[in-house]
Design a protein around this nucleic acid. Structure first.
Length: 726
DNA sequence: CTTAGGG
DNA sequence: CCCTAAG
């Protein structure tokens, strides 16, 4: 039989419609080969007309059937793998065409090399165009056009215009003309059929043959063997695997024949639910096997499956036009249930096939981050309108499904149409990430506009009367407020941005280090600056600059109660600073220690640098800190060591040849001295030890003391020596 | 809970 | 400032 790919076709009328000049097949080589594929080379005239590209209009190719065994797969899933088609098709297509050159030359001896080269160039160009077209199709999201039209387009001067033109044609053509070889799935089916070597299937409609896709060009579509039926039933597991791969572009390990058939069917019908394990393509329509009703038959068969509902609205025969996104979630869910009998692998495959994946934690968080504001507002609305059936703005595309409080976190799951799957995407509402806000009223102080009038008044009264601003402050305010809920709502309603803003201004104001001012600002723990943590998370930093008076209080507290008694100092000296925890005091003291010991050279480096940011700590205070620290023997170990090391280094420098202050002769003397001194010191230490031990022994033995012993006893309390406390 | 210490 | 181990 003869299969022509390209513009040659049996259905002349159709090709005329497509604006393709029909060329006579009589120009085929007289030498009829068993299975020739005839290429007709055309070029595009300025007016878009197609004319023979070369004098020798066609090239015959024999036995391109190799490709059957080469495993050229045509991928059916239009949205996903058209690019794949073009790649495979084109590259190996070129290979084919080049082989074709070598092959055809002996056949067409008259062809001169130049012409042949030119032709090949043209083919190359054509293939490029095909690629381009396919990209276009992908971009346009119109996978419902057949490759046949693609290749036709590729021969047009302006691909895009032509594309549209043909698309239009296609649309009006479909209802008029039953045999439309335009369904991408059908084409791929053909390939599937051939690669699956299902020769048993019935005869292909001629119209199908007319279609030439880039892949057809290269894979030698053996349409003759396509009988117009897709008989997945007849395929072996291996073949089904092949088919699966061709359909979805990936491998599968599933051994379940039923499942494979179902998956393939679904893939070929654009992920529609196909419960049939066998269907046929009859007159280029999907028809359930044994059903001659055409499209209706197919849809009818689908309709037998309870979950399927929306097929009837689709343009008949336009299987490829099924819109993923319009597919009701219900159906997909149901499908899931249907196939639950399968293995884990099945589920995996299913999920992948639907291209739906459970969102990652990070995705959820980021999504929530973006929508948190929105969600909070919506939540508020929900709460407010809870009596009115929770009216949600119709604009809202997210449907809150439930709202669970788990571990202090508000977890909202929303129904998101993620790939139309109806998967519930948890939406973490980040109400508060760090420790619970101790006093949200403080916030209101910085945001008078959002503070209830009553609260404001109470606040002012409290301030004016000099109430000690202690921990109970906010409670009083709340109690005094006649409408606490109202206040609360207003607080929650403050958008995060505003909060931040007010906080910022508050920080600016609070920089004035007056203690009274601090007191009035106290309890605002919302000097919140988010800082990235090493783990990539974000935490809120409750930073509050230490004021001088606080530092002084701390120093005083340490001197009075001792370092380490932080809770005591907190309780007694910082009773009015609710925002300073004992840990804060401890941390601050640690910093003070560091500063005090680091400040050996005053007025340099450290100090000036400190001026830029926080308030510089006056030297007297630092001296006091140092004094206290030395008194309490708390020299920061790391600091002391580094300090000693630094000093040693400085001293070393004095002895160096280059920067030192000694001549080489002096250095020699010094060196000798140091060596001797060290020896001497060691000797002295040993002697002292001996003397001490001697003394101890004589005392212990109650013997009379010599002169050394007497001298020693005048310096030491014998009881102490004896008791070992020295 | 408090303290100490690392980060 | 945050976190956590240890008492």
């Amino acid at each position: 039989m003869e299969t022509e790919v390209g513009v040659e076709g049996n259905d002349e009328a159709k090709h005329k419609e497509c604006g393709i000049r029909k060329s006579s097949s009589s120009l085929s080589s007289p030498k009829q080969i068993s299975d020739p594929v005839v290429y007709k080379l055309v070029r595009v005239e300025g007016d878009g007309r197609l004319v023979p590209a070369t004098d020798d209009e066609l090239v015959e190719v024999e036995s391109l059937r190799i490709d059957d065994r080469c495993g050229m797969h045509v991928v059916a899933d239009p949205g996903q793998t058209v690019g794949c088609i073009s790649n495979e098709g084109s590259s190996s297509g070129m290979a084919q065409l080049k082989r074709l050159e070598g092959w055809s030359q002996p056949e067409n001896k008259k062809v001169d090399p130049d012409k042949l080269n030119g032709r090949l160039e043209y083919i190359d160009e054509m293939l490029q165009k095909v690629k381009e077209e396919e990209r276009l199709y992908i971009a346009c999201g119109s996978p419902d056009c057949s490759s046949a039209y693609v290749i036709v387009d590729s021969q047009c001067s302006d691909p895009h215009d032509k594309l549209l033109h043909i698309d239009e044609k296609l649309q009006c053509e479909i209802p008029l003309q039953e045999p439309v070889p335009l369904l991408a799935p059908s084409l791929s089916e053909s390939h599937l059929n051939q690669s699956g070597s299902v020769g048993e299937c019935s005869h292909p409609p001629d119209e199908l043959v007319a279609g030439g896709s880039p892949s057809s060009v290269t894979t030698k579509p053996d349409f003759s063997r396509l009988k117009g039926e897709i008989c997945l039933d007849n395929l072996s597991i291996k073949e089904l695997h092949e088919t699966f791969k061709a359909t979805f572009g990936r491998e599968t390990t599933v051994k379940d024949k039923q499942w494979l058939k179902r998956r393939i069917s679904m893939g070929l019908t654009n992920s529609c639910d196909v419960s049939t394990t066998s269907f046929i393509i009859k007159d280029n329509k999907f028809v359930k096997k044994g059903n001659e009703e055409g499209c209706n038959g197919m849809y009818g068969s689908f309709a037998k499956d309870p979950p399927i509902v929306n097929q009837k609205g689709l343009p008949t025969c336009h299987v490829g036009q099924l819109d993923y996104h319009k597919v009701p979630e219900r159906r997909l869910e149901n499908h899931n249930l249907d196939d639950n009998s399968g293995s884990d692998d099945h589920q995996k495959e299913q999920r992948a096939a639907k291209r739906v994946r459970k969102p990652t934690k990070r995705y959820i968080e980021e999504l929530s981050e973006v929508e948190s504001k929105e969600s909070n507002e919506r939540l508020l609305n929900l709460a407010k309108d809870s009596g009115h059936d929770g009216l949600i703005s119709p604009k809202s595309h997210v449907r809150l499904v439930r709202n669970v409080s788990s571990g202090g976190r508000t977890v909202i799951t929303r129904l998101d149409s993620l790939g139309g799957s109806g998967i519930q995407v948890p939406c973490v509402s980040r109400v508060r990430r760090s420790r619970p806000r101790k006093n949200f009223m403080a916030l209101l102080k910085f945001n008078p506009s959002s503070m209830g009038m009553a609260a404001a008044l109470v606040e002012k009264a409290l301030d004016d009367h000099g109430f000690p601003p202690d921990d109970g402050n906010e409670n009083r305010v709340l109690k005094a407020s006649s409408t606490p809920e109202h206040v609360h709502h207003q607080f929650v309603g403050v958008p995060e941005k505003d909060k931040q803003f007010s906080v910022m201004s508050a920080v600016g104001l609070g920089n004035n280090t007056d203690l009274k001012c601090m007191n009035s600002n106290e309890d605002s723990d919302d000097n919140a600056v988010t800082v990235p943590t090493s783990k990539g998370g974000i935490r809120r930093k409750h930073h509050r600059a230490w004021t001088l008076s606080e530092v002084m209080k701390l120093v005083e507290g340490v001197s009075r109660y001792g370092a380490g008694r932080w809770s005591e100092i907190k309780r007694l000296a910082f009773a009015s600073y609710s925002y300073r925890t004992s840990v804060d005091l401890k941390d601050k003291w640690r910093n003070l220690l560091k500063a005090s010991f680091a400040q050996t050279p005053p007025d340099t480096g450290m100090n000036s640098r400190k001026n830029t940011g926080a308030m510089p700590i006056p030297t007297p205070i630092l001296l006091k800190v140092r004094e206290l620290a030395e008194m309490q023997a708390q020299v920061p170990p790391n600091l002391s060591s580094t300090k000693v090391a630094g000093s040693a280094r400085k001293i070393d420098v004095l002895f160096t040849k280059k920067h030192g202050i000694f001549s080489s002769a002096e250095r020699k003397i010094i060196g000798n001295f140091i060596i001797r001194w060290c020896r001497w010191k060691a000797a002295f230490d040993a002697l002292a030890c001996v003397v001490s031990l001697r003394l101890l022994i004589s005392i212990q033995m109650g013997k009379g003391m010599g002169r050394t012993q007497q001298a020693a006893s005048s310096h030491f309390k014998m009881s102490e020596i004896y008791s070992g406390s020295l």
